[in-house]
């Protein structure tokens, strides 16, 4: 239970960063912290005590294995995470080009 709690705290730290920080790059960093925690949650739910990784080796007996399905899912979500980071960086660079700042409070042509 304490592990889940710590993982959830990590998520909330990321959320805190997104909601309060004003620098575009800080926001992107906080988003990736949130994604780490979401990925960790999935893998933690699949861990089985005293079990081995789900890969067979030649000449070795089949032992009990951890849950491979969450691992497959997390593999996917890591790639998605990189995609969103790249797109956000591209947008941030363009925003800097237009506004000459990374501060979100000064980037405010849209309001209301």
């Amino acid at each position: 239970m304490i592990i889940y709690l710590l993982c959830f705290i990590l998520f909330l730290v990321g959320l805190y960063g997104v909601l309060t920080k004003r620098n575009l790059i800080k926001i992107i960093l906080s988003l990736s912290i949130m994604e780490y925690s979401a990925n960790l949650f999935l893998v933690l739910f699949g861990y089985k005590r005293d079990a081995l990784f789900p890969i067979l080796e030649k000449g070795k007996e089949i032992q009990s294995m951890v849950d491979p399905l969450p691992q497959a899912l997390v593999l996917t979500s890591i790639v998605i995470e990189l995609g969103i980071t790249a797109m956000l960086v591209a947008l941030a660079v363009r925003l800097y080009q237009k506004y000459k700042t990374f501060d979100i409070t000064k980037i405010r042509r849209l309001s209301g």
Partner: peptide, 21 residues
């Protein structure tokens, strides 16, 4: 447009993390 897209992407990825959890 970049500003709107950035806002949308940030909001979208917050909700995606929530959905993943």
């Amino acid at each position: 447009e970049f500003e709107a897209s950035f806002k949308y992407a940030v909001m979208g990825s917050i909700s995606s993390s929530l959905i993943l959890i």
